[in-house]
Design a protein around this nucleic acid. Structure first.
Lengths: 192, 192, 192, 192
DNA sequence: TATGAATGAGCGTTCATTCAT
DNA sequence: TATGAATGAACGCTCATTCAT
């Protein structure tokens, strides 16, 4: 009994998410309207708010899922041994963050949360990124004079700086990859 | 005639700015409403948009002014020779950025601009910060293996990372100063 | 300048009211939807809430206007000299109150107000009714042993009791007029 | 078997009622939410509607029970001989009606019912009140020129008018008791 | 230059009630 | 009987921005 009921609930939830994903695929995250989502999912508007506190929670879910997918691919291969390999490994995530202004904004908004309770997929993905990079830095050809955790935090800082600069019209001569490379080379390698 | 008119216009503009400053002093930047500003300034709502393109332009003005004030104090003394001195010199700016979530957001939004025409006080302050730090890095006890400009960009990245982390409920053990110190020590000094 | 602007505002307001009146004429008060009103008035939804605090305020206006119209007709002739004349004079108002359940409800809700500030047309109409009846009672063939003001309050009580009973399925044998007549005969005349 | 099932059903029903009573005791009738009731009773939302047709039915039950309690005390003594005694006897009921706006509203809504089938505790209490008062009026020192039934209806009208006026901010100078007294003196006694 | 009424598109909310299981 | 997910149709609201005067 209970199982069946819960199953139905999960189905509705996933229909909402699928509908949203379809819309995002077609038109991007920016013009995602709750009304459109429920319309496409074939459920009532009220149902949306049974499953999600607000639109941000859904966006958190969608973007967080993409981030986790990227992370999955990131960790599926051997740890990057050099900065250049690391940059290549990280660049998909940076590209996601820099793909749409509103994605960047949601990630910033959701990256940390006031309460521990509302840690969503985005925050958890960022945490996972952090610890993944941290592990990598311990084994590859990187500077060892600084704790890997601190270095990983720095990597994140640069991964956010790069798309941020990309949204600006000033200094846009470089590609995001080139920029990240410059930063990480200076950050992760000690000149000999 | 022309002069008188301009004078009146300037007065209106400054009344709007003063009104906004008063509100910010009392309630912070967050709940700044155009309605309140014009009410306090004693002008009509439309008048606001005669003087400012949008609300962000006013916020840019207000926050940019604070940033320039901080910069003035920053440059009024001899260049910081060590990372610790640098951190001490930079921390007021970091504290401003970390004071309110919405201040941080406006700075991010305004840090770069789509068009070169709308470079506001915030963008110019960040540029000034950049070049100031850049100059400092050339003369003090900092690593010289990397172009000062790139290092300065990194400093900016960390100056944004620190308040960003501060807004999170995760890992808030450290003070902003301690965090900045850790980053910059690793970023600006080559271990011997 | 100011005049022109105010005139436009008044026009918009009256267009909203007219639109609402048309809808009410066609479909009654119950299914009055804000959305429909603004659609018919050709204004934006936000405009509605510039002019009215909420839908109740508009209903207050509409029903209050009808009540005042009825009152106008009530007072346009010589004071009713007998209870039967009085009943005939009052019955249009009672019929309005008993015409739709939701009209009755709005009148009850708006009859008195928590704050003096939000005395709307309905409350003022009831006040006017009260004093009108009060004056009548002083000059006609009514009992003089009780203050006219108290008697008028009682008349109002009966005027509300009658439609209230009318909405009930119990004891609906009598017409509203007959019922009011029975009450007022006993209330306003001293048997000799 | 049948018995056991019925017993369980009755238990659920009484748990719902108890839960509702507790909430009303703590927070009054106004904010009574079905959600809260079922939560406190530890049953599912749907179960509520197995036992009650709608929320009003529960409120009817709760308020009707209070009214019957008051009636029990009312009739437990000798009939009031004078208007003043009558007022004293009636005032607890008036106070209940005037205690909360929403109680007043529910009583009005339930005082009569569309169908004879759904005569609830409130309607029956009002009926009982009516016939009780009616009997009293036949034996005490009241006017005899008008049928006791009609007089009793008037008494009820005044018993509703008094709390109604009490909810208004206009003319709240008098206490409910004083007001009722004034009405009933004029209504039930013929000046000599 | 100043005015202020109007805009507008969507969000979040409400919550008693229904219905398939 | 009991369950609880889903419903649904508006409402109220937001508030920076525009535009005719």
């Amino acid at each position: 009994m209970r199982k069946a009921v819960q199953k139905r609930s999960l189905e509705t939830r996933s229909r909402l998410i699928c509908a949203a994903e379809e819309i995002v695929l077609q038109h991007g995250h920016e013009p995602l309207r709750v009304e459109e989502v429920v319309l496409r999912a074939g459920v009532a508007k009220g149902t949306f708010f049974v499953h999600f506190k607000d639109k941000d929670e859904l966006l958190d879910l969608l973007i967080g899922a993409q981030m986790h997918l990227i992370l999955d691919r990131m960790v599926s291969r051997v740890p990057p041994q050099t900065v250049d390999e690391l940059v290549t490994r990280l660049i998909p995530m940076v590209q996601l963050l820099g793909s749409e202004r509103c994605v960047f904004d949601v990630v910033l908004r959701r990256s940390g949360s006031a309460a521990l309770s509302d840690i969503g997929p985005i925050a958890s993905a960022l945490g996972r990124l952090q610890s993944t990079v941290s592990e990598w830095l311990k084994v590859g050809q990187y500077r060892q004079d600084t704790p890997a955790e601190l270095l990983a935090e720095g990597v994140e800082a640069f991964m956010l700086q790069v798309p941020a600069l990309n949204f600006c019209a000033l200094s846009p001569r470089k590609s995001m990859k080139a920029r990240l490379q410059a930063y990480l080379r200076a950050w992760l390698v000690v000149p000999t």
